[in-house]
């Protein structure tokens, strides 16, 4: 299980994967908005999306697990 945490405080602009989808390393999983810029969060490794814990508009911090891969 690989948990992808938010790299910074921000707001979720879009969730770019669905539960069950296969992702490769460096695929975009979530797009955040922070400091008036879009920050793309990339998958750290290959895997299948096990959980998506956030929705569009959620405010996330560095402790928030955005997506978990298995």
């Amino acid at each position: 299980m690989v948990q992808i945490c938010s790299p910074m405080v921000g707001k979720v602009l879009s969730v770019d994967v669905k539960v069950g989808a296969e992702v490769k390393k460096n695929d975009v999983v979530v797009t955040l908005e922070a400091m008036k810029m879009q920050i793309k969060v990339y998958a750290p490794s290959d895997g299948e999306v096990a959980e998506v814990n956030i929705g569009i508009g959620d405010v996330v911090s560095t402790e928030t697990v955005l997506v978990a891969l298995k």
Partner: peptide
């Protein structure tokens, strides 16, 4: 602020997508 930090963040991500420099650059 925060333009310079944003530019730095983008350069970091270009070199390595796992690299989130935004807050470090602030």
């Amino acid at each position: 602020v925060p333009m310079a930090a944003r530019v730095v963040h983008n350069m970091g991500t270009q070199a390595n997508p796992q690299n989130y420099l935004m807050m470090h650059a602030m």
